[in-house]
Amino acid sequence: MRTRLIIGSVAAGLASVAMAQVPSVAEQVKARQAGMKSVGAAFKGLRDEMSGTPDAAAVKRHAAVLAGHSSKVGGWFGASAASAPGVTTAALPAIWTRNADFRKAASAFDVEARKTLALANAGDMAGVGGQLRALGGTCKGCHDDFKAKDD
């Protein structure tokens, strides 16, 4: 009985360790790239709306996607998510060696994304249009220093 209990709890313990196991570097990289793609698609969505007569509902939707991701960007690049052999990533080592600067860039993005969402929720389409440059500047600001150019 006692041994059974011990075996059972050890097995359960092992299982829970397996479940809670940190995702591999490859998984984390894939997840954050998917996240960035979704950021890119939402940002393009905003730009496209602004190139014609904007549809307020669509603008709100895209702004919400952006603001939903913007607070998480810092977390996508944890110490365990640096590169590993065989994983293609455009993330530069500077993310981890100059992590304070990287986090600053991430929070600049978060601030502008929230501003954009507030304007979108207020139905201020002209305001969203004017905000795009500042918002896009935070993408570029981070990519210039922390993302490899694709060639």
Partner: peptide
Amino acid sequence: ASDDDGLETGPLNHLVSYATA
């Protein structure tokens, strides 16, 4: 076409989806 930031695009980029671009 579009670069990764989506800041620099060709003039017809708005006519296609993100994935198509």
